[in-house]
């Protein structure tokens, strides 16, 4: 479903992504681990088109999308959530989800009629709000909901475009342990045919959700395998300086 071939990116003398090749099958849930500065977000930005790789290619559902813009990739089914909330702050939860759903259904550029009143848009909003447990807050403005609920909405907005592949950049970043547990359930309850690539520091979540784990270090893939193999890897233990056993 999503494939990269030898993605390479340098910022001046800093080599941030080194020949990264990944292959995600349909429905696969892969977690990317790595210390700060390992190049995880830079890799995401190249996947969605916010950064252009120096060399290598990105393929989505068999199509080479390397030269496509962010919006073109999104319309082909590549959606992302951000590490820092990137929401429409003055709007309600419903309007946030509705904007995304309207883009997906093609109502976002129409001059006639309210896009949020369209039955197909309303249907997506309702379904996603239920998937990410946002129904109790549906009419609340973003500024009125808690940080944890905003993280749910961040994922919800990405989901409302009905993606083939969902990229999530630290979905549990900044949330407490209780909320983090709720996120495990939320991610586990998403449709099984949705392909997910998740950057995460929360080891519990990584081992709970992932089918596959990829570890980046200094922009290079140093591990690619099943979660139980990752647990026993001495290389990873070295990278994370023992934090592994705590997980």
């Amino acid at each position: 479903m999503l494939k990269t071939r030898e993605l390479d990116k340098k910022f001046g003398a800093v080599h941030v992504t080194r020949q990264v090749s990944l292959k995600l099958e349909r429905g696969e849930r892969r977690v990317i681990l790595g210390p700060n500065g390992a190049g995880k977000t830079t890799l995401f930005n190249q996947l969605v088109g916010e950064l252009t790789p120096d060399s290598g290619s990105v393929h989505l559902a068999g199509e080479d999308v390397t030269s496509l813009t962010v919006a073109q990739r999104a319309r082909r089914g590549l959606s992302r959530s951000y590490q820092k909330n990137t929401l429409f702050d003055g709007l309600t939860v419903e309007e946030n989800l509705g904007l995304a759903a309207a883009v997906h259904t093609g109502h976002a550029t129409r001059l006639w009629g309210d896009s949020l009143a369209r039955p197909e848009v309303r249907e997506i909003v309702q379904e996603v709000a239920e998937q990410v447990n946002l129904m109790p807050f549906i009419h609340a403005k973003v500024s009125e909901i808690s940080y944890g609920v905003r993280r749910q909405l961040e994922v919800g907005v990405a989901l409302a475009t009905r993606p083939l592949v969902l990229l999530m950049d630290e979905p549990t970043s900044g949330v407490g342990p209780e909320m983090s547990k709720a996120f495990h359930d939320l991610l586990n309850n998403l449709p099984r045919d949705l392909t997910m690539l998740i950057i995460e520091h929360d080891m519990d979540l990584a081992f709970d959700v992932a089918d596959t784990i990829t570890v980046l270090n200094y922009g290079e893939v140093v591990f690619d395998g099943a979660p139980n193999e990752a647990r026993g890897s001495s290389l990873l233990r070295e990278i994370y300086l023992g934090s592994w056993e705590d997980a």
């Binding site: 999104a74 992302r80 951000y82 309207a102």
Partner: peptide, 30 residues
């Protein structure tokens, strides 16, 4: 205009242009 799909997307762009682009909207056209 402001209540149409186009108008709502236009407001969305003012609130968060990067996100609207990431959702698949051709921002310059809107």
């Amino acid at each position: 205009i402001l209540r149409s799909g186009l108008g709502r997307s236009f407001s969305g762009v003012m609130h968060n242009e990067q996100r609207m682009r990431a959702l698949g909207l051709t921002v310059w056209r809107v």
